[in-house]
Design a protein around this nucleic acid. Structure first.
Lengths: 109, 109
DNA sequence: CTTGATATGTCAGATAAGAGACATATCGTA
DNA sequence: TACGATATGTCTCTTATCTGACATATCAAG
């Protein structure tokens, strides 16, 4: 049962906080859309569709959370993203909020 | 800026994980719908509509996460909810997941 | 005796997000 | 040379969710 709940939560966090999930992955190491989809499936067992990922990546870049560069190997092109300082600030605000939530739990436990 | 991000996250966590937010409030002390809406506004500054809260409370009870009893003061009735063991399991799975997320951060920091 | 607060409920319509299709291109391999 | 994998992009339609309206009832205060 605890395992069922865990899977549910992994799925929900990943989908309803998809932008943060993506920022966290890219922060670990610069990455491109296709790779994000593959790693999310391998690491979490969650299938993202590219129709959801690519528009979000573009939006995150427009809003200043990501920066991209084109990498060309032979004639193949990929857009590798890295997290900007603004993106790092959002991720840190996220971790701070998680800590806060856990703290509240300890106080009342 | 960090403060703006925090407010954003409070809002998003509360709305996209509304069921867990409600379970956590009720776990602190048994509570009814109207009170949940008031406390959420006072504590977090987030306005929930009763059209979202009441159907969710009923759904959480049907699915076994909450249990309700009718409290009558004079002729006024209210439905006070408490969290079931199943509900507590979900909340604990939630906290475990938060801890996991923070752990991952430490490893890669 | 009427207004605002307490208290719960349903439901139609709006809205936001995503799935999946359409589109294109390279590369390796069978 | 055709298929599956890599790689990115747009867009329509569906689906899920919430807002806000409608509905009802008690109570306190002005």
């Amino acid at each position: 049962m605890a395992d069922t709940f865990r899977k549910q939560l992994v799925q929900r966090f990943c989908k309803s906080l998809l932008d943060i999930h993506i920022l966290r992955l890219i922060q670990k190491e610069p990455m491109w859309g296709y790779e994000i989809i593959k790693q999310t499936e391998q690491l979490l067992g969650v299938k993202l569709t590219h129709g959801a990922v690519y528009p979000l990546l573009n939006s995150l870049e427009t809003r200043g959370y990501l920066r991209s560069r084109k990498e060309v190997k032979g004639r193949r092109a990929r857009k590798t993203y890295e997290v900007t300082s603004r993106g790092i600030q959002l991720i840190e605000a996220y971790y701070n909020y998680l800590r806060e939530q856990l703290l509240k739990q300890d106080i009342e436990a």
